[in-house]
Design a protein around this nucleic acid. Structure first.
Length: 402
DNA sequence: GTCAATTCACATGAAAGAGACCACGGTCTAGTG
DNA sequence: CTAGACCGTGGTCTCTTTCATGTGAATTGACGA
């Protein structure tokens, strides 16, 4: 009961945050630091839209947390604001994140989402694709207007669907009488443009813009800017910001990561009842973020995925050096027998292993063992603490007693 | 010893099926005037 | 006569299977020094 008291007390009396939302990733600050060049470039490319002219398609690329989305949204907001000032209403700025599961990760859903954001009504499923397309065209073509369509994480969409839908979108312009569509593609992958249809490439890439990684100093500026309003005065210990920035810069100059770090460190300090955020909180925050992310991923997987992972974990515990696809499949089959679940084909299990690799739960490398064939060499990518937790989660989910 | 052919154990791709979900339009049923 | 229930059809989406093809180096076996 003392513990509860302590927790409640620390919340009641000792709130370190002034406004936590500011250090959350989706907050859009009014000034974007160290991206002036890019923001100006975007603005000058999109500006003709104010006169109702079609603007060039634009392609933005750069690593995660390099400010792409933020910059575009910022310019978009300013643009629509300006539009209102002039008193016109022939510009629509639509932002869609193609990676959102169950929302906009298929061709149908992307278009449906478009219609929705135009206040249209469209069922989640059930209509033929071209019906959705024509509904969309109908909706926007009723008057002269410019539609600026931002497709975030467009590489994910193209990978899942194919690149023809971008082509369809760009070609719509020739069928529209009044409206004009312009695309802004945003991609995390630098190599995305290399392996897509050249027609798409040339139309989407009319203008290209690279967002470089932030370095540690720039990250510090960004963190300071946000921390000023997010935290109460004097709660940040000396060097906290510098350390957050350094951590994040060590990775990929990811600003989102840096902010998460700062926020979680704050939450931890608060929970602890500390009056200040100290350096040690950042270390724990770093571990916690890593751990939570992994466990979330593991917990969120379907039964079959969990069984495969459980098989890998068992094999790893037994030791004996490397784990190969064949071993995993055998162990997996045994587990299926125990849990009375259907056994998937090796083909499918191979894909599941590849997906775990993508998620970063395991490291899988394709190697050739000569006459012993080709296979994946699999290593678990979890530290012992996470492993323990993960095991618990899996055993619970699979209803296994060991 | 050297070299090309062979071979293994999967990887990787493409296509297609099953089953869930859903909209639409037509038909049936019950309730109303 | 009409509103709502109910059905069949046709569409998407996800997960999976089936079939086909690809692949990199250890191994093998022929060959020549």
């Amino acid at each position: 009961m003392d513990k509860i008291d302590k927790i409640l007390d620390s919340y009641a009396t000792n709130n370190l945050f002034k406004d936590k939302s500011i250090v959350q990733a989706n907050y859009v600050p009014e000034a974007i630091l160290h991206r002036a060049e890019q923001v100006e470039a975007i603005a000058s490319i999109l500006a003709p839209a104010l006169r109702g002219e079609k603007v060039s398609n634009l392609f933005l690329y750069g690593g995660t947390g390099s400010g792409k989305t933020l910059s575009v949204q910022h310019v978009g907001e300013r643009l629509t604001e300006k539009m209102k000032q002039i008193g016109e209403d022939n510009l629509k700025f639509i932002y869609i994140n193609c990676k959102l599961k169950k929302v906009a990760d298929t061709e149908y859903r992307i278009i449906a989402q478009l219609i929705k954001s135009l206040k249209g009504n469209i069922p989640f499923t059930g209509l033929p694709l071209n019906a959705v397309y024509s509904k969309f065209m109908e909706m926007i073509d009723d008057k002269k207007q410019v539609i600026i369509l931002v497709l975030d994480e467009i590489d994910q969409a193209v990978k899942k669907i194919n690149d023809s839908f971008i082509y369809t979108l760009t070609r719509m312009n020739s069928e529209l009488k009044n409206a004009q569509i312009s695309l802004i593609g945003i991609s995390n992958s630098l190599t995305f443009m290399e392996n897509i249809d050249p027609r798409v490439k040339s139309s989407l890439g009319e203008e290209e813009l690279l967002f470089p990684h932030y370095n540690a100093l720039q990250l510090q500026d960004i963190l300071r800017q946000r921390a000023e309003n997010a935290f109460k005065e004097g709660v940040l210990d000396e060097g906290v910001i510098a350390k957050c920035a350094a951590y994040a810069a060590r990775g990929y100059g990811d600003a989102r990561r840096a902010l998460d770090l700062l926020r979680v460190a704050g939450e931890l300090a608060e929970r602890e009842g500390a009056k200040k955020i100290e350096l040690k909180h950042i270390d724990t925050a770093n571990q916690k973020i890593e751990k939570d992310k992994m466990l979330d991923v593991i917990e969120g997987q379907s039964i079959q995925f969990q069984q495969v992972l459980y098989a890998i974990m068992n094999l790893e515990k037994k030791g004996r050096g490397s784990i190969f696809t064949g071993d995993v499949y055998n162990a997996y089959q045994e587990i299926c027998n125990k849990t009375k679940n259907e056994i998937l084909t090796q083909r499918r299990v191979g894909d599941i292993i590849a997906e775990f690799d993508m998620l970063g739960v395991i490291n899988a490398r394709v190697i050739s063992k000569g006459r012993q064939g080709r296979t994946r060499e699999i290593k678990l990518n979890l530290n012992s603490e996470i492993k323990e937790k993960a095991k618990e989660i899996l055993e619970k989910a699979l209803d296994l007693r060991v």
